[in-house]
Amino acid sequence: MPAPERIPPRSVTVVDLLTKGELTVRGRIREASNAVLYCSVVYEGMEAHCVYKPVAGERPLWDFPDGTLAQREVAAYAVSEETGWELVPPTVLRDGPYGQGMCQLWIEPEAEGAGEPLLALVEDEEPGDGWKAVGLAEVGEGRTALLVHADDERLRRLAVLDAVINNGDRKGGHLLPAPEGRLYGIDHGVTFNVDDKLRTLLWGWAGEPLTPEVLEVLARLEDALAESAPLATRLAELITAAETDAVRARVRELRRTGLHPSPSGQWPAIPWPPV
Score class of each variant (00 low, 15 high):
2 P>R: 12
14 V>N: 01
14 V>E: 04
15 V>G: 01
23 L>T: 14
26 R>G: 13
29 I>V: 14
29 I>F: 14
31 E>L: 10
32 A>L: 10
33 S>L: 05
34 N>D: 15
34 N>P: 10
39 C>Q: 04
40 S>Y: 00
43 Y>H: 14
43 Y>P: 00
45 G>R: 03
46 M>N: 05
47 E>R: 13
48 A>E: 14
50 C>D: 06
55 V>D: 15
55 V>Q: 11
58 E>M: 01
62 W>K: 03
63 D>V: 06
64 F>N: 08
66 D>A: 13
68 T>K: 02
72 R>A: 12
78 A>D: 04
82 E>W: 01
82 E>Y: 00
84 G>E: 14
85 W>M: 11
86 E>T: 02
86 E>C: 08
89 P>C: 14
91 T>D: 04
93 L>C: 11
101 G>M: 07
106 W>S: 08
110 E>D: 09
114 A>T: 07
115 G>V: 07
117 P>V: 13
121 L>H: 06
122 V>D: 14
129 D>Y: 00
130 G>R: 02
135 G>W: 02
136 L>K: 15
144 T>E: 15
144 T>D: 05
148 V>R: 02
154 R>S: 15
159 A>C: 15
160 V>H: 02
160 V>L: 14
162 D>T: 09
162 D>E: 14
165 I>N: 10
169 D>H: 08
171 K>N: 04
172 G>A: 14
174 H>N: 07
174 H>W: 01
179 P>G: 12
184 Y>E: 10
185 G>E: 10
187 D>P: 02
188 H>D: 08
194 V>A: 11
197 K>C: 12
199 R>L: 07
200 T>C: 07
200 T>S: 15
201 L>F: 04
205 W>H: 03
208 E>V: 02
211 T>N: 04
214 V>F: 02
225 L>R: 03
235 L>T: 09
235 L>C: 05
235 L>M: 04
236 A>Q: 12
240 T>R: 02
242 A>M: 02
243 E>P: 02
243 E>D: 07
244 T>F: 00
255 R>C: 05
256 R>I: 02
260 H>K: 01
265 G>E: 09
266 Q>M: 07
269 A>S: 15
270 I>N: 06
